[in-house]
Design a binder for these strands. Structure first.
Lengths: 243, 243
DNA sequence: TACAACATGTGGTCTATACCAATTATAATA
DNA sequence: TATTATAATTGGTATAGACCACATGTTGTA
């Protein structure tokens, strides 16, 4: 790895960040390999450990590195997100387009909201339903979604029901909830091993990460979904009205 | 704002981060307001400035705060982050959030629709305006967009006007067109050399590619825009109503 | 050999201080 | 009054050291 230049006008942490990045991209370090320890990098460049930390922080933040306390910092094979999620009415869309589709319910459980409490607008120990579903179009996995539903809004929700009808249908018909507003956020990511495998892709494949909250007329949060979209022929499309 | 508890097992920076966040959410600070100076927060909580900085870093990163060297750190309008696509009215969005922004008009020309004819719903030899604009937030390129406007809808459109007011403003005020519906499509891409350079990024950087068509009440296409989004703190967010 | 205790190496947090860079307020001056 | 110079304030970068928390390797003992 290149040494930093103390007489350069560029900040030291910035130079180090660039140098580490260059080293990774030049395959001087490969995926899974351990980065030299912070103290070592500090000594090597003759700078303080806090400055090294700042450089590493940036790369950890952007997904190039992963810190493991007590063990070391490692080069990733790109990006490291965890959960997953859905869309509004997948079934309806697919039927309208006349596409052959399938939904695989990978998980159905009741869990404490925990760190999702804020997003779900409830307490950390409140119970929520968690559904993990894989959406398949024309035999190709397209979308992996994790949906969270506050349990108090959905009494007697069963796995059986979900297998028979769409969640959207249930929300409307059984629970008489009328979704009126959706907030969403999207970003580009590279899939990690876990996600890629479920989507039948290679780790590092390009895709979209989506978070969505749906509200009813009383501004009450009805569902929160995070989803991974495959970047393929079936592009993510949406439209909305301006009022 | 609550003071941090030094005997708590929680890290000091974490407590401070939470306290600032709570204060923001309790409207103790409001959008646009200045956060107490780092040195002040340090003294108030009897901790070092570096620790304050770490807490503030996190909130800056997640978009709650903005730093302005020499001037201060300010609360952003986080609640309003969920709104319509910034593609629609970039200027309005930025003003609402109190962000410093700039638009650089890279190109202004009249060209035949050619291969865009289908998307613009016109003939290949019909004339269209083409604008290439770089959107800059807080001195960082954020979004590169190419907008196409059917020339028959925009008589006497001048470069001058575009430099002075927002396109959205012009569409509404000068041309009396009322946008009522937007169709959009998004996918994850890696920027090529050309795009990356304009966005001040390295080729291969991850981002979003966007295509958007806006229609008026008569279902008439008013503008078509394709855009490249940088994958950074200012996430692309939108919301829409279901009707 | 199996296990427990310890030592070592790693990142995590925190301090107190120093000086730089950009902005803004204030005072001095023309 | 208008302009310019200066001071004060704010965030930006950087240091050297300290101790904590976690993971793993080593060693001594049963």
């Amino acid at each position: 790895m290149k040494k930093i230049n103390k007489s350069s006008p560029l900040p030291l942490y910035y130079q180090l960040k660039e140098n580490i990045l260059a080293a990774i991209q030049a395959d001087e370090f490969t995926a899974g390999e351990q980065l030299p320890a912070e103290r070592e990098l500090a000594e090597y460049n003759n700078i303080s450990r806090m400055t090294v930390k700042k450089a590493v922080d940036i790369l950890v933040d952007s997904g190039y590195l992963i810190r493991k306390q007590g063990s070391g910092t490692f080069i990733t094979d790109y990006q490291d997100n965890y959960s997953i999620s859905p869309l509004l009415s997948f079934s309806q869309e697919m039927q309208k387009k006349g596409l052959d589709y399938k939904t695989k319910l990978l998980k159905f459980e009741i869990i404490p909201a925990a760190e999702l409490a804020e997003k779900l607008n409830c307490q950390p120990d409140d119970k929520v339903y968690h559904l993990e579903r894989l959406r398949i179009i024309e035999a190709h996995p397209f979308l992996l979604e994790n949906t969270y539903l506050p349990s108090y809004l959905f009494p007697e929700l069963s796995k059986q029901e979900l297998s028979n009808s769409s969640l959207y249908q249930l929300i409307q018909d059984k629970y008489k909830l009328k979704l009126t507003n959706v907030e969403a956020e999207v970003e580009a990511i590279m899939f990690n091993d876990q996600i890629a495998q479920k989507m039948d892709l290679k780790a590092g494949s390009l895709g979209l990460y989506f978070e969505q909250s749906s509200f009813d007329a009383q501004e009450q949060l009805v569902e929160f979904t995070s989803a991974y979209y495959r970047n393929n022929n079936y592009k993510f499309k949406f439209n909305f009205n301006l009022t």
